[in-house]
Structures are given as structure tokens and as C-alpha cells.
């Protein structure tokens, strides 16, 4: 499954295809001609050492920062995301490294934050919220996605870190119609909570929505990924198949200690 060359017409149409993405921060070249493809219904793990450009790539793909060169093809069309809002409007949701939730609000308020449902008629005109409708819709969607968020009515500040991350993941999953990006979603979690997030990732993939999963944790990556893309110093240095490659292969590709093994891995 070569995804680094020209568009492959004999495969399924990729949901997102980025080609030759370059991003400079002053003199530093954070991304140096990165090709990256996301296919329907797959979990792509994006791995790399600190400073390899993982977060920069995700930020470019989700409209947080603009890129300098290269093009992005989304659903068969060339797109330019000028803001995260823009990417969200295309059905791309992101779960951030630092939890992007409002801890003083409850799960429903967080899930609908910025997308509140208003009541009908004159009350809606004055901004009155349809809390009942939002709660029902949340329950319905979470049920459909088989996501379990405990205690919908409680302020998140009273929940554990894992439960809060569950809400952040649920929010992304509920709104993402095309792709979910997860930037180190398990970094702050314990073992059991990490397992439930990994489970959630598989559930999301099973609904057909692809997931791009960034992590430092190799066992997690190998457990959940269908394909592993390795970044090093702003370049894609390898694509590995977790079924055949080993954690050692991934680590050598990340650190650049053996490029031969790395580039052989995924082909």
C-alpha cells in the first residue's frame, strides 16, 4: 500500500491527501515536503521523536497554522483551511494534547460548545439554549458511536482526567464526519483510561471515520494502528505495517539509527 506517490486510482479514494507540505518557523524547517494520506476507515498512527514535526503537521492539516508550500486534497478537492473553524466545517475534528474543554461546564455544554442549539421562535432569537434537546442529541449520538461518557450533568472539574478526556474524544467523534485527529490523547492518562480511549479509537474507525493518532507510546500505537507513519526532522522517513513491523523498527526509524530497515518496513 504505497501512499507516498501519485494518486492511486485503483485504491479507495483517500479522504485527505497532503503533498509536499513545507512549513518554516523562521530559519527552522519544521516540515520538509511531507506527503501524508488518510484513507477511509483506517487508524493512521503518526509517530516521531520530539521536534519531528508531528504536531506541526497536525496543526497544518487542521487549519491551526498555514503551510508555506504543498497542497492538500480533501474529498477529491484542493482545499485551503484558513482556520480550525474552516477545517471543522469540512468535518475534521481534533482532540488536543492539552484538554480543550471548559472544566466548569458539564459534558453536554462542552460537547455543544460553540455549536449550541437554541430554542425555537422568539426565545431562540434571544439566545435561549435548548438544553433538553442538546442532552437528548448527545445521548443519542454517544449511543450510536458506542461511546460512554459518565455523568452527563456533572461539571467536568469533578471528573477524573480520563473521564474528561473521554468527553473531549466524544466531542470530536460526535462532530467529525470525515476525520478525527488525536494529538497525544493518552499522554496524561492512566492504564485503564488509556485502554478506554484506545477502545474508542477502534469504535470510531468501525463507524468508517478515519482516525489520525499521534503518540509516543509504541505499544499503544501497535495495538490500535492500521498503518504507522514515521516522521523525523520534518520528513516522512518510513511507513510501517504494524502487523509485520516491530517496535524496534519503529524506534530505529524515529531515531534514524537505521534507515534501511525503516524504509523496507512498510513496503
Amino acid at each position: 500500500m504505497d501512499t507516498r506517490g501519485a494518486p492511486e486510482h485503483h485504491h479507495v479514494t483517500p479522504v485527505l491527501q497532503a503533498r509536499g507540505i513545507v512549513k518554516h518557523f523562521g530559519a527552522v524547517k519544521a516540515l520538509n515536503g511531507v506527503d501524508f494520506t488518510v484513507n477511509p476507515g483506517e487508524v493512521v498512527a503518526l509517530i516521531g521523536d520530539n521536534g519531528a514535526g508531528k504536531s506541526t503537521l497536525v496543526n497544518v492539516l487542521t487549519g491551526v497554522i498555514p503551510h508555506d508550500e504543498g497542497e492538500m486534497i480533501f474529498d477529491g478537492e484542493v482545499v485551503h483551511f484558513s482556520s480550525p473553524q474552516d477545517a471543522r466545517d469540512h468535518g475534521i475534528e481534533t482532540v488536543y494534547q492539552d484538554l480543550a474543554i471548559a472544566p466548569h461546564l458539564d459534558a453536554v455544554a462542552n460537547i455543544f460548545l460553540g455549536r449550541e442549539k437554541r430554542m425555537g421562535g422568539i426565545a431562540g432569537f434571544f439566545g435561549f439554549l435548548d438544553n433538553k434537546g442538546m442532552t437528548e442529541e448527545t445521548i443519542e449520538n454517544l449511543h450510536r458511536l458506542n461511546v460512554r461518557v459518565p455523568q452527563l450533568g456533572r461539571r467536568l472539574v469533578t471528573l477524573s482526567g480520563g473521564q474528561r478526556q473521554g468527553v473531549a474524544v466524544a466531542r470530536a467523534v460526535m462532530w467529525a464526519s470525515k476525520i478525527v485527529f488525536m494529538d497525544e490523547p493518552t499522554a496524561a492518562l492512566g492504564v485503564a483510561q488509556t485502554q478506554s480511549v484506545l477502545h474508542l479509537i477502534k469504535e470510531v474507525r468501525n463507524t468508517g471515520t478515519p482516525v489520525v493518532f499521534i503518540s509516543h507510546n509504541m505499544p499503544n500505537v501497535f495495538e490500535v494502528a492500521d498503518r504507522i507513519v514515521v516522521l523525523r526532522l520534518g520528513e516522512v522517513v518510513a511507513e510501517l505495517d504494524p502487523k509485520t513491523a516491530t517496535i524496534d523498527d519503529a524506534v530505529s526509524a524515529m531515531t534514524g539509527s537505521s534507515r534501511k530497515i525503516a524504509s523496507a518496513g512498510g513496503r
Binding site: 480543550a100 471548559a102 466548569h104 461546564l105 455544554a109 460548545l113 460553540g114 439566545g127
Partner: peptide
Amino acid sequence: VLSRTRFGRYTYAIGSNAAAARRVGI
């Protein structure tokens, strides 16, 4: 207004986590 409207909801959200509020497009 504070307890039932979107204006109130945004007021709490910004005080709770302004960065998160920005990220969801508020």
C-alpha cells in the same frame, strides 16, 4: 441571561478555559 442563554454559556466557558473557547470558534 447568565443561566439560560448562549451569552451566559460563553461567559462561563471563557472564564473556565479561554483557549478552549477560542478553539471551538467562540
